[in-house]
Design a protein around this nucleic acid. Structure first.
Lengths: 339, 339
DNA sequence: TTGAGGGAGTGAATCGTTTCATTCCCTGCC
DNA sequence: GGCAGGGAATGAAACGATTCACTCCCTCAA
């Protein structure tokens, strides 16, 4: 069933070494031999066995990318950016989904280590740096994605999330809101805690008050759940602005606030932005198309991905000093915070 | 740098065969030996080399999944379904993005073939069955996803897209619309042509007329572009209903129709559903949260993914007859077609 | 005529794991 | 005491591509 170089060599009447040369450095082989070998490859339907090649080479040509949530368009955009840059260098990208779960992240790290990946890009779930450090020690370059590393051991590419949190909160303050709720969680995720920290700083400085409303994940469902809770409060108890840790949450919150008439009682609906202004984070495609177009904090997703691959390649080549790239987030104002 | 079974064996004072047994069938090894070997593994930081293991096994433990567009939440949902079922069997899923491009699909198929994948799940870009047939012949089980195969050579799991198209068009007819536009493309993608065919049949039977408006891809951007064109027509030339081939397109169309005031002229805005009713396809999470909550045709995405893995496993085991699973789509009515 | 030089091709060794036929040794029974 | 039986461990062979030191042979210059 499996056709090997040996079979091709026999068929073409040459040695296995020559077949390998035809495959990898055709210029070293006489043209007519190349032609003959290629004909045999074609005829027999030979396909290189990557496992054998890797075994010899000691390292694969695939990059592993572990994201917190494949369903979040922000991460798929990061993946696309990485994929494109990787393709330029003849590398492939394997996308894995940790789903914000530590054990799933660990499972994929093990897998990637066993596969002797060319390199690994991770959006870490939590403080699991020792595990990642081991990865590096084993000779697999690792780059932290969407996460600033103050650890000299890792290269990283990130967006200043503290600044992003500040920007969002400042914007809410600037339109006159004072009772601001931050929706997000778990705080073990750095993106969440940084954005929260930025918001806290801004609110403290601007003379407002910040309420923290935790979630179990950064998903639309969790947003709906939390949004329902806010909608069901008495108007006096509601915040006058909400900053959601990402757009998925914000969209869920938005849905609960303005759309679902709580069974049989349409009056409990909240107006956005009049009653509550709402801002998200990431500026995914869908935010602009929401019921109330959503204000957000934009991150250069594709650029983050391609930059991460660049860092990986640099690390792969020389023992360059680790780099830490930080991009600045940008405020995008739409109807959900207009006025 | 690389620690091998050999090193572990030496360190523990046993043979390589024993180390391998500890790794794969510990019950065959005396408990105290297991302990000693495991201690060595721990101490030396040994990690299995998957390439070597694969080389011996002849086949990997990874499933390749090629989708048309990672940014489409429908496909990431399919991926999640597949991933979960695969994990139950100790398999991993590698997600690849063909971006609706034939050459990218081919590149990934080559890669998967070289890697002797456990199996491959594909949402084919176009009629490239010969290439896929070769895959099967080389012993790599292949399942067509989201695409009904009438070809006995392939197992497939799909949703009846013709029926889905019919359901959508019937619904538009049932609310009194007669001048229906179908937005989608390229038609070389089976999902598009099937949905179109279903819509055509329904419209022909229901006494309406169907206009075909082509797109270059099934994305939000293309939707915006096409939507802009419709908005800019004189009201008399506009259709009274639009059926978009998927939700991304529908969301883009929606945005152009109701939101972007064409520079300096807000009057050209179209009302949805009063002037134009709109329905999409896939029922992704974001559709319920759109400016005007979007009607859609729902497909059981996660179930499609897990079923595809099931078919792969069956094919892998016995030479069972190929199966063709077809799910039925369900209409979901929301505000964009209310009235 | 001889020998240097070089293009073309060869094939054994190598990568690290798994497998399996074989050896070793102990226990218990006749 | 001898031997069958079996649990435990061994180590060589195999997987398939790549590499590299080496052979072969031809040309050209001295």
């Amino acid at each position: 069933m499996a056709v090997s170089v040996r079979d091709v060599a026999d068929d073409a009447g040459v040695s296995v070494g020559t077949v390998s040369n035809v495959l990898n450095r055709p210029e070293k082989v006489a043209p007519e031999t190349v032609a003959r070998v290629q004909a045999s490859i074609e005829r027999l339907g030979f396909v290189r066995n990557d496992a054998a090649r890797q075994l010899r080479a000691g390292r694969s040509r695939t990059i592993g990318l572990i994201v917190l949530d494949v369903r979040n368009p922000f991460f798929t955009e990061v993946a696309r950016g990485a994929e494109e840059r990787a393709a330029d260098h003849g590398l492939s990208v394997l996308l894995a989904n940790s789903d914000e779960k530590k054990h799933r992240e660990a499972t994929y790290l093990d897998l990637f280590e066993e596969q002797r990946m060319f390199g690994v890009l991770v959006t870490p779930v939590a403080e699991n740096l020792p595990r990642l450090r081991r990865m590096q020690e084993r000779g697999i370059p690792t780059v932290l994605v969407d996460r600033e590393s103050h650890d000299a051991a890792f290269a990283s590419v990130a967006v200043d999330d503290v600044e992003g949190g500040r920007i969002a909160a400042d914007h809410l303050l600037s339109i006159g809101r004072r009772r601001i709720a931050f929706v997000g969680g778990p705080v073990s995720i750095r993106q969440v805690s940084d954005r929260l920290a930025g918001a806290q700083a801004a609110v403290a400085a601007g003379g407002g008050q910040l309420e923290f409303i935790g979630t179990n994940a950064l998903t639309v469902e969790e947003g709906r759940r939390v949004g329902g809770g806010i909608r069901d409060r008495s108007p006096a108890d509601r915040p006058d602005a909400i900053f959601a840790a990402n757009d998925l949450l914000a969209l869920g919150v938005l849905q609960s606030l303005v759309m679902s008439p709580s069974a049989g009682d349409g009056s409990s609906t909240v107006r956005v932005p009049e009653d509550i202004a709402l801002i998200g984070y990431d500026d995914i495609d869908f935010s602009a198309a929401a019921v109330i177009p959503l204000s957000s904090v934009r991150q250069p997703a594709a650029l983050i991905g391609s930059t991460a691959v660049d860092l990986l390649l640099e690390q792969q080549q020389g023992a360059r000093p680790r780099e830490h790239v930080v991009f600045q987030p940008v405020l995008v104002v739409r109807a959900s915070t207009a006025g």
